[in-house]
Design a protein around this nucleic acid. Structure first.
Lengths: 251, 251
DNA sequence: CGCCCGTTTGAGATCGTTCAAGCCAGGTGG
DNA sequence: CCACCTGGCTTGAACGATCTCAAACGGGCG
């Protein structure tokens, strides 16, 4: 498979120090010598294909992951089988902290498209963290961001209507894509309407209708999963309070 | 003031080792020698009266707090002035981590009634944590719990109807009161309907009506802020999926 | 005693859901 | 190569839970 080969090739070359995502990733804020040590821990497993799980709820946590390519979704399964989508993760973003307290993951992460990660084995990471306060602080910072994201979502879910929710979501994605060197005005949604709806606490019909409405109003153009934001200013007004930014583990 | 004197008297005697809340508090899981060191950091400021802020959003974070008596609410102020109540804190529960990442609090905490806290100054706590991996792990565990709580709330806000929300809330409170040696079947709500409503993503009218409905159905009796749960089994069924437990920073 | 605030209760409006039908793109098999 | 099928998406119509607006109640405090 050609794709597999390309990815493996990249994997061999990838190192935190040279990684174009480094600034967004765990290494951010670490000094060169600490970075070297961190780098030695990193594993780069084979890519996952669409739908494959990176980890599952109640799995013993054995690593933190950085998205290298592709994208992920995390969700959480209620006792009665209902799913709740908790977040989406783009390249450079970290996931898997949810287990740091208990040693067990609380949610499942699966790939929305073919995707690959860097893996930081927990045992060695904690050992390193116990000796490097700076790494500890970095981990606190990341968990804090997770909390910040969840609290933004609480505000969104309790106060915002469908338009505000979708606008917030799209601007957030745009901002995160932009930060990664992709276009912030035009992008591909790797998640289905159903996933977006679940994440935003709506039904897929409402998401679909709201997309159509935004398009009629000239705020964006959308065709299946391709979106182009045409009037970010107005979208931003629609999105309402709470920074449109800051979703997921992005800085 | 008599009350003030009593509280000060208790404050002098209180020490983590003897504190009846110790098992629920930060010290849980720490060994005796580490506990001693932690204990030396603790300050016990004067009680706060109803409405007084323990810390405010955008304040520089300089401590973590453990509730000693009374109760607190945390909320988060959106740009347009809308408030979002994030959580309630009972004796033995810890608050104030939200700033661990950035060094700034993201939300405001205020007393719902006369309340007092133990204060763990951040600078010394971090210094201690840098030398005590066990304390670090404890802090991770607590932040993790915060995340767990927020994610339970995300599920509640996106999936549950008013009855499920209120039932979940009441059972959660009951469980937390019970763990603290108060009655788990009958308790006083220190927060207003407005606060409950905001926390649950409803209006105060809906909360009020749902209380009345529960009472008509024999699930509980309620008079102003005094609640007695009469049929926890049925309430539990109503509450739906996601553990009814685990709210806030309680273990 | 009377005011004020938090709460309860009622009636109507609204937004999102539900149920249902149809569309479109991509993949499959004849 | 085309017909068909499937899954994801769009659109419509009616329903319903919650919100909004409004009024009245009741306890606590000056």
């Amino acid at each position: 498979m050609a794709i597999r080969q390309i990815i493996d090739f990249v994997a061999i070359k990838a190192a935190c120090e040279n990684c174009r995502l480094a600034a967004l990733c765990l290494p951010a804020g670490l000094e060169a010598p600490d970075l070297k040590r961190l780098e030695q821990l990193v594993r780069r497993p084979h890519p996952l294909r669409r739908g494959a799980a990176l980890f599952r709820a109640s799995d013993r946590m054995h690593a933190i992951y950085a998205v290298r390519a592709g994208s992920f979704r995390t969700y959480y399964l209620a006792e009665d089988g209902r799913e709740k989508v908790l977040g989406f993760y783009l390249p450079g973003e970290l996931l898997g902290f949810d287990g740091l307290g208990s040693g067990q993951h609380r949610c499942t992460a699966d790939a929305l498209e073919t995707a690959s990660v860097c893996e930081l084995p927990l045992a060695q990471l904690q050992e390193l963290a116990d000796r490097l306060p700076s790494l500890n602080h970095q981990l606190y910072r990341l968990m804090s961001q997770e909390i910040a994201h969840d609290q933004e979502m609480l505000l969104l879910l309790s106060d915002k209507n469908a338009q505000e929710r979708l606008a917030t979501f799209l601007l957030n994605l745009a901002q995160r894509f932009g930060k990664r060197g992709f276009s912030a005005g035009e992008f591909h949604l790797s998640m289905s309407r159903q996933n977006i709806a679940n994440y935003l606490g709506l039904t897929l019909e409402t998401v679909s209708r709201t997309f159509s409405q935004f398009q009629r109003e000239g705020l964006l153009s959308v065709e299946r999963r391709h979106v182009r934001l045409l009037d970010k200013r107005r979208l931003s007004v629609m999105a309402g309070p709470g920074r449109p930014a800051s979703s997921s583990t992005a800085t």
